[in-house]
Computed example of a mutant assay.
Amino acid sequence: MSTSARSRADLVRHSAYEFALTTVLLFAVVSLIRRLAHPGRRWRSATRGPCSPSRESRSPRSSWA
């Protein structure tokens, strides 16, 4: 393998390593901040946000007919 091909492979390997490390660290920091902001709260599902009504407060479908 020539020197330029080896250095190019090292550059690609290093870039992939940096991307993976940055992704993992970003996920860890965001998770830590969310955990500290709301210590007793469980994670919410993506489909039901803070503005979604709970299932108990919705009217049953049979009354819509």
Rank of each mutant, 00 (worst) to 15 (best):
S63A: 03
W43Q: 00
H38N: 01
V12N: 06
R48E: 12
S31P: 00
Y17C: 09
S2L: 09
R8Q: 14
V24H: 12
T3Q: 07
I33E: 01
R35M: 09
S15R: 06
A9L: 11
R13Q: 01
S59G: 10
L26R: 04
R42P: 04
V29I: 14
W43L: 11
A20N: 13
W64H: 15
A9S: 13
R42L: 12
L26F: 06
A9K: 05
S4Q: 14
F27S: 12
R41K: 12
L25A: 11
A65V: 03
G49R: 01
S4L: 14
A16Y: 13
R34D: 08
R8Y: 08
C51F: 04
G40V: 10
S52M: 05
Y17M: 09
P60M: 00
P53Y: 00
H14A: 15
S59N: 05
A46G: 05
T22K: 13
V12C: 02
C51M: 10
R6N: 13
S54A: 10
R34G: 03
V30M: 07
R6Y: 04
H38K: 02
T3L: 11
T3G: 01
F19W: 08
L32N: 03
E18N: 13
W43R: 09
A5M: 02
W64L: 15
S4P: 07
A20C: 08
T22G: 09
